[in-house]
């Protein structure tokens, strides 16, 4: 019988703890497929962060380290500097990367650290129960912005890709989304490219993935996908912000 669909070998058989309709599952799969297609499973080392993806070390079928909140790029730096031939990636959410871990991500990018960062941006803290994130949109209601995020009170959401793209060490910076199938395919290509940038030693690579949080947004999965498309993409435009010649 011809196999038309199977679990990537880079994913364990463990059932994830993610909520129904959460896009983490899709993004995990895309990362795993990329690892499989590049044939780097036995030299991949992943770094799980703090937040919903804290248990990513249970799901990726490669060597993994679990990092303190926001520190995944520093941990990945330590690993990569010891084993430059390993393929080292972090998997971080927006609270982890864009709030508490801002220094680590900016400096890893500035150093041109040869790691790949998968940055899942769903504009909210998921694990802790739906608090305001640095990427929460103006007007968006969360448990700590119950009247909607007010810019005069707590400022504006941070556009990480645009910010990192100003740094010379950041070789590949792109924003993709997983709200529909064509975009999921594009996201997969971006992740592959990011790993290739690392393999070729071109510098730091990051793929920002616009994602959803049906549970904490208080929506059905379908509503959430629609909300992401209609509200997030305007503030967080998709596209490549920096791409090295070698992978264009």
């Amino acid at each position: 019988m011809k196999v038309v669909f199977q679990r990537p070998t880079a994913l364990t058989e463990r059932q994830t703890h993610y909520c129904p309709g959460c896009t983490h599952g899709i993004i995990h799969r895309l990362v795993a497929e990329a690892i499989d297609e590049l044939g780097v499973l036995d030299k991949a080392v992943g770094v799980a962060s703090v937040g919903c993806s804290v248990l990513a070390y249970e799901y990726f079928n490669c060597d993994m380290q679990q990092a303190a909140h926001g520190r995944a790029p520093a941990v990945a730096t330590g690993i990569k500097r010891v084993h430059p031939n390993n393929i080292v990636f972090t998997y971080q959410g927006d609270g982890d990367l864009a709030s508490i871990g801002m220094a680590e991500i900016v400096h890893a990018a500035a150093r041109g650290e040869k790691i790949t960062v998968i940055f899942v941006n769903n504009a909210i803290y998921g694990m802790t129960g739906g608090q305001m994130a640095p990427t929460t949109l103006v007007g968006q209601k969360t448990t700590t912005s119950p009247y909607g995020r007010q810019a005069e009170h707590c400022g504006y959401p941070v556009r990480i890709s645009e910010l990192l793209a100003t740094l010379q060490g950041a070789a590949y910076v792109t924003r993709v989304s997983v709200h529909d199938v064509p975009n999921i395919r594009k996201a997969k290509r971006a992740i592959l490219k990011a790993f290739e940038v690392q393999q070729k030693g071109l510098g730091f690579s990051i793929v920002e993935v616009i994602s959803t949080c049906p549970t904490n947004w208080g929506m059905t999965p379908l509503e959430a996908l629609k909300w992401a498309k209609e509200n997030m993409l305007e503030y967080y435009p998709l596209g490549e912000f920096r791409t090295p010649e070698e992978v264009k």
């Binding site: 990092a67 303190a68 520093a74 690993i79």
Partner: peptide, 19 residues
């Protein structure tokens, strides 16, 4: 490697020690 902070430095140590 000179890290951006002590916080980052010790986490680099964590990564390297783990490796």
């Amino acid at each position: 490697l000179q890290a951006e902070s002590e916080v980052s430095a010790i986490n680099m140590v964590y990564g390297a020690a783990g490796a």
